[in-house]
């Protein structure tokens, strides 16, 4: 009986230590493990011109414009107060639209415009039939 209790304590302590170590290691990763920069990060930390990064946020309402050449689109990625202008040449994903999430891969130009090579649409956690759309659609930020 004694040995069994010893093993129980030992196993519980080991489990707590392992899970605790995992959580600590992961929280130490913090921002390093983030999949994209938000416009707020860019405004706060600054990203060197020409470095390949991902920029994520919401496509600002009313910001999508098509330039005169017909294949370049310009829009603004926003994240609460911060906003970044983005330029992209190519085919946008089906789910790319205003007021929904987007992740752009590319680099900053010297004038502060983000030149995207690739766009990924970000879907949020809400699922609903088409007739309910509108009333519930009010996500403003991608921050968890």
């Amino acid at each position: 009986m004694k040995a069994k209790h010893q093993r129980l304590t030992l196993a519980l302590a080991a489990l707590a230590a392992i899970v605790g170590a995992g959580v600590l290691a992961v929280s130490a990763l913090g921002e390093q493990a983030a999949y994209f920069y938000s416009p707020a990060d860019v405004a706060r930390e600054g990203v060197p011109v020409g470095r390949a990064i991902r920029l994520g946020g919401m496509v600002e309402k009313g910001s999508i414009r098509r330039s005169d050449d017909g294949v370049t689109i310009l829009f603004t990625v926003e994240d609460g107060p911060a906003r970044t202008p983005v330029e992209f040449r190519g085919v946008t994903p089906d789910l790319f639209k205003e007021a929904s999430g987007v992740v752009a891969e590319g680099r900053f130009r010297a004038d502060g415009t983000f030149i995207a090579d690739n766009l990924l649409a970000k879907h949020d956690e809400r699922y609903m039939p088409p007739q309910l759309e509108g009333g519930k659609h009010k996500t403003e930020t991608l921050e968890p």
């Binding site: 992961v26 929280s27 990763l29 493990a33 983030a34 999949y35 994209f36 938000s38 994520g56 992740v103 990924l120 970000k122 879907h123 949020d124 956690e125 809400r126 699922y127 991608l142 921050e143 968890p144």
Partner: peptide, 11 residues
């Protein structure tokens, strides 16, 4: 929840 990911948050 901890990180910004492409995958959406918990539904």
């Amino acid at each position: 929840v901890w990180w910004r990911t492409l995958h959406q948050g918990p539904s």
